[in-house]
C-alpha cells in the first residue's frame, strides 16, 4: 500500500539511500498488516471495546465463545491477525518517531525496541491463543 512513508516535503531533506531488503520486508509486513487490521479491527474494537461492555448488544455467551476460540483454524487466524497487526504497528510507529518527533539519530535503538516488542507480543499471543 502506498502508505506514504515519509513526508518528503515537511521533513525538509532528500533521502538518497536505496532501501535495503530488510526495509522492503518490513514495508511488506506493514502493508499486509495494514490490510488485515483495516478489514477486521474496527468491527472487533466496536463490539468488544464498546458495545458488549456497555450492554448495547448481548456479548457472546461464554461456552460458545470459548468453543469458537478453541477451534484450531480460528486460533491460527487470530494469531496471524495479532502478529500482522503488531508488525504494522512497529513499522508505522518507528517512522512516527523518526519524522514526527525528529528522532532520526536514534534509528537503530528505536528499530530494535519496536521489533523486540513485536516479538514479545507475538509470543504472548501464541501462548494466550493456544493455551
Amino acid at each position: 500500500m502506498a502508505g506514504a512513508r515519509k513526508p518528503a516535503e515537511p521533513a525538509g531533506r532528500v533521502s538518497t539511500a536505496k532501501p535495503s531488503r530488510v526495509e522492503a520486508a518490513a514495508w511488506l509486513m506493514f502493508s499486509a498488516g495494514g490490510m488485515v487490521t483495516a478489514l477486521l479491527v474496527p468491527v472487533l474494537m466496536l463490539l468488544f471495546g464498546v458495545l458488549f461492555p456497555l450492554g448495547v448488544l448481548t456479548p457472546p455467551d461464554h461456552a460458545g465463545f470459548a468453543a469458537l476460540l478453541s477451534h484450531q483454524l480460528v486460533r491460527i487466524l487470530l494469531l496471524g491477525l495479532c502478529v500482522l497487526a503488531l508488525l504494522h504497528w512497529a513499522h508505522r510507529f518507528r517512522y512516527t518517531l523518526f519524522d514526527g518527533l525528529q528522532l532520526d539519530r536514534t534509528r537503530t535503538a528505536i528499530n530494535v525496541l519496536c521489533y523486540a516488542a513485536v516479538l514479545a507480543g507475538s509470543v504472548w499471543a501464541a501462548v494466550v491463543l493456544f493455551a
Binding site: 487490521t37 479491527v41 497487526a85 504497528w89 510507529f93
Partner: peptide, 11 residues
Amino acid sequence: ELSSVAVAWFV
C-alpha cells in the same frame, strides 16, 4: 501515523 498505537492497543 498515530493510528498504529490504537492497533497495538487493540492487540
